[in-house]
Design a protein around this nucleic acid. Structure first.
Length: 281
DNA sequence: CGCAGTGTTTTTGC
DNA sequence: AGCAAAAACACTGC
């Protein structure tokens, strides 16, 4: 569930409380959290290193250690990265890793479904982290114009499938792909190549708007997602189609439908999002 | 009770 | 190419 707005919220909530802190020690409780290293080697490498900055790329968090190494974190489905200012003894379930800081405080990786991953790499060297290496452009960066989006949509694949492809655009997941398509009035099954210029512009605007609004609301908590402070987000109250199957569209009262696109649950308004199959290009 | 559904990414097979 | 399915998991809801 953590998509771009959730990961960005985690980044923003962790930044003021962990930048400048030095890792005194760490413990790994789930070996597969680290696909490329053993726990003892990993902890040995991060020990006594200071967090210089924390940046986000797509759904990845990149934590700079001493300007030399980078700790790469991907939360996948249910991962949480939470800062605990004081010792709290009742250890919750599903704790995959803990980092203790020299001046007290703890960073904890909690992950019910255990899909989350962490990597350690030389600064800027992402060749060993395939998903990060092949990541598409940041939708909230200045360079992401509607022309860039148009270039990525040149495919006969369903538009929803293209939006979820991280090599095309970084950071969109199931929630915001559905929400952006609804706002743009584009049917999720419409082939990318079939969108006209006006539609691409509208979709571009919708993607940027929904991501910014979701960040302003600290992300969407359906169940597991938490900010770096352990709080829930608020954007779940502002969703217009995602998980609203059978409820009336806010625009036309038509009931929201759910279909499968590329194996993923997809929610849309059959009246506001139409696809007349007359595109033959 | 069993089993489908949940959603991200990688891998494998057609 | 591009798509489907499976796999990595634990828990929820029917």
């Amino acid at each position: 569930m953590p998509e771009l707005p959730e990961v960005e919220t985690v980044r923003r909530t962790l930044e003021p409380v962990i930048v400048g802190k030095t890792i005194e020690r760490c413990e790994i409780y789930y070996q597969r959290l680290l696909p490329q290293a053993g726990a003892s080697q990993f902890c040995g490498q991060v020990r006594n290193r200071t967090i210089r900055e924390i940046v986000r790329r797509g759904k990845y968090l990149i934590i700079d250690l001493n300007g030399e190494l980078e700790l790469i974190v991907h939360l996948r489905m249910t991962g949480q990265l939470i800062y605990k200012p004081t010792q709290d003894l009742p250890l919750q379930k599903h704790v995959s890793a803990r980092f203790w800081f020299r001046d007290n405080g703890e960073l904890r990786f909690v992950d019910q479904r255990k899909f989350g991953t962490m990597y350690l790499t030389q600064k800027g060297d992402y060749q060993g982290i395939h998903g990060l290496f092949t990541l598409g452009p940041e939708p909230l960066a200045d360079g992401f114009t509607w022309h860039v989006l148009a270039e990525k949509l040149k495919s006969m694949r369903a538009i929803k499938t293209i939006l979820l492809d991280q090599t095309k655009i970084a950071g969109l997941g199931n929630i915001y792909a559905d929400e952006a398509l609804y706002r743009a009035g584009v049917h999720p099954l419409k082939p990318g190549s079939c969108l006209g210029g006006t539609e691409v512009k509208k979709l571009h605007q919708s993607i940027v708007a929904v991501l910014k609004e979701a960040i302003a609301s600290h992300g969407t908590t359906i169940k597991d997602y938490r900010t770096g402070s352990g709080d829930t987000g608020n954007f779940q109250n502002k969703l217009r189609v995602y998980r609203r199957t059978g409820k009336p569209c806010g625009n036309c009262q038509t009931l929201i439908e759910r279909i499968k696109v590329g194996g993923r649950s997809t929610h849309f308004c059959p009246n506001c999002q139409r696809w007349d199959p007359e595109c033959m290009d």
